[in-house]
Write a protein that binds this DNA or RNA. Structure first.
Lengths: 112, 112
DNA sequence: ACAGCACGTATCGGTCTGCGATATATATCG
DNA sequence: CGATATATATCGCAGACCGATACGTGCTGT
């Protein structure tokens, strides 16, 4: 699962949201780092829906504009926890491995 | 950066390794979850090299078989730490968001 | 002796995914 | 009345992963 897809699922973990709201939430959740493109969003939403991790919630009209809400499913919640745990573990292993590096012997050169 | 590429970089963080060794290390680092395919490995290695995150180290002959070693660069190390931190943060945000969910009201049905 | 398997490097094509561009429509602001 | 923000949706390109494939050597079992 890509980070983009992961963020979509994360956004929906709190409450049902509509497309544009998901884009905003993903940006906020990633600390402004990830700006979801609509092309990416709808592709991800389609795939998540096909996999049963997300489902359409309701349509609302807000200030004359249609808002289509999506909702995370129980399966989606489980998958989010599983994927989140995997990601946390992998990140930790990587950071630990870097920290465990002994200062490398200076290959020499200008410093000598 | 995909998890596969991330694992390649993580594997090399400890010491220079050759292709097959990276595959084994990635499998171990991911707790047996990710089995890197050679097609993936060489693609990733090419990209990482092009980006200056990894570089060829040396060629060795071990029991008549060629071993081509790769080494992580300083830039690769920095990138690994940055990516690892991002991943840790994103994972934490996701898991926190799930935990913050209040038990949803039972939508009703057979239980009623 | 020889077959089969593990090790080891490398390439190719298919497929999935992300993204930029584009299209459509309405409300608001200047 | 035009520009901008909100909002949904599709299309085609490019990048990345992976399965298949190819090639070669050493070790092991029969």
């Amino acid at each position: 699962m890509s980070e983009q897809t992961f963020l979509v699922l994360t956004a929906l973990a709190d409450q049902p949201m509509h497309g544009y709201g998901i884009v905003s939430a993903a940006e906020e959740l990633s600390g402004g780092r990830v700006r979801l493109r609509v092309g990416t969003l709808y592709g991800a939403l389609d795939r998540l829906t096909a996999d049963g991790l997300v489902e359409p919630d309701r349509d609302e009209v807000h200030q004359g504009r249609l808002r289509r809400y999506y909702r995370i499913t129980d399966a989606g919640l489980s998958e989010l926890v599983a994927e989140g745990s995997r990601r946390e573990a992998t990140a930790r292993v990587a950071l630990d491995r870097v920290r465990a590096r002994r200062p490398r012997p200076d290959p020499g050169g200008s410093t000598a």
